[in-house]
Design a protein around this nucleic acid. Structure first.
Lengths: 200, 200
DNA sequence: TTCATAACTGTAATTATATACAGTATTTAT
DNA sequence: ATAAATACTGTATATAATTACAGTTATGAA
């Protein structure tokens, strides 16, 4: 139940922004004013639709009683990626953790739980969560999440051209990975924009 | 203007918790009900006092229009610690970053910006922000923030007894620091519970 | 074609909420 | 010693806000 219409997405994003910026959710009137509705009931209808689709909850009789549902307020943590489908597919999501705007310079689309020790020399350890942005264009020198023939890996992008991509592990006991994007199926899932480690 | 009374602190923490748990601030009535006030005006008075002391803001005529002020909603980032005074003193606070409940297993009292490379072997690099909890009792094996004769350092606590404390750097080119707490002024400022790195 | 969904206008009523004013008692600074 | 701040009770009211009901128009699916 998550296929929001264009309009519903606009409304939803507005509510999200208001909570983020003001610290509390908007009223029906405020929503209506923002979108030019002449009746608060237009906002009411939208809220009901958004509730029905499961992206938010409404506390009855409560002013500003709008809360974003877990699924929509948190950032997914990707554990092991199953071969095939998209990285953000339901079955890859280990849990979600609250969004924290302002903590990092870039937006975070998901966290990836690090496996292995191939990046220890730049301080990325096993079980660290690396914050990934899907939309920053990858560039040499960046730490990227790449998918090579359905296998997902985190490496430094050392070289990129039409015929050759070099992915460098940051651990002297590993060797560079060289890929020919014309032969192999290479997809960049995103750029690493941050790191989170929990000393439990 | 930050010396809250005991009661004011209770009220303030309740409001903070409500925002965190519900997603929106409480009303005067809800505050009153929680604390057993028989008049919503008791809550109103408290809110005015808290506003006057600068820890929150009130939007006039707005239901649930309570917002925590920057100073009280963020977690301070400590850069260089000036000798002498307390680590959380105003002059040490470089900036504050939004609170992120639920991201780490432990509470965070402040972030410390890491200087030097003495902890690289456990993946703590220069300019990383380490999340510090002041109240967890320090124990061997933990990474701690220690102050030795007014100098602040981050190390692994290797040994602790009445007569000897050993602080171990996690970098083979550094040597252990041995302190006699009876002779030297040794204070543990907190335990490292997490790490945050921003790939700007 | 007909029904459901989407995206609204318009009106109205109940209730939720902020907030002022008038007090009282206690504690804390000056 | 005295004023100011703290921590409330009690009452009252304007207005902020939710939310139901009755419509209209457009669109896409069955």
């Amino acid at each position: 139940m998550k296929n929001l219409t264009k309009r519903q997405t606009e409304i939803f994003n507005y509510i999200k922004d208001e909570i983020e910026n003001n610290g509390y959710p908007p009223t029906r009137s405020e929503i209506s004013k923002t979108f030019g509705f002449k009746s608060p009931n237009a906002a009411e209808d939208h809220l009901k639709a958004l509730k029905k689709k499961g992206v938010l909850d409404l506390a009855a009789g409560t002013s500003r009683g709008i809360t974003l549902s877990n699924q929509s307020s948190g950032i997914p943590v990707i554990g092991l990626v199953s071969a095939g489908g998209p990285i953000l597919a339901e079955e890859n999501i280990e849990k979600t953790i609250p969004n924290n705007p302002g903590i990092l310079s870039h937006g975070i689309d998901f966290y990836l739980k690090v496996k292995g020790d191939s990046m220890v020399d730049v301080g990325i350890f096993e079980n660290d969560l690396i914050a990934i942005n899907k939309n920053i264009p990858v560039k040499t020198g960046s730490i990227v999440v790449a998918r090579i023939n359905d296998e997902v890996t985190v490496k430094t992008l050392a070289k990129i051209s039409d015929s050759q991509v070099i992915l460098r592990p940051e651990n002297s006991s590993y060797s560079n990975i060289e890929v020919n994007p014309k032969k192999d199926n290479l997809i960049f899932e995103g750029t690493c924009v941050g790191l989170l480690r929990d000393f439990a």
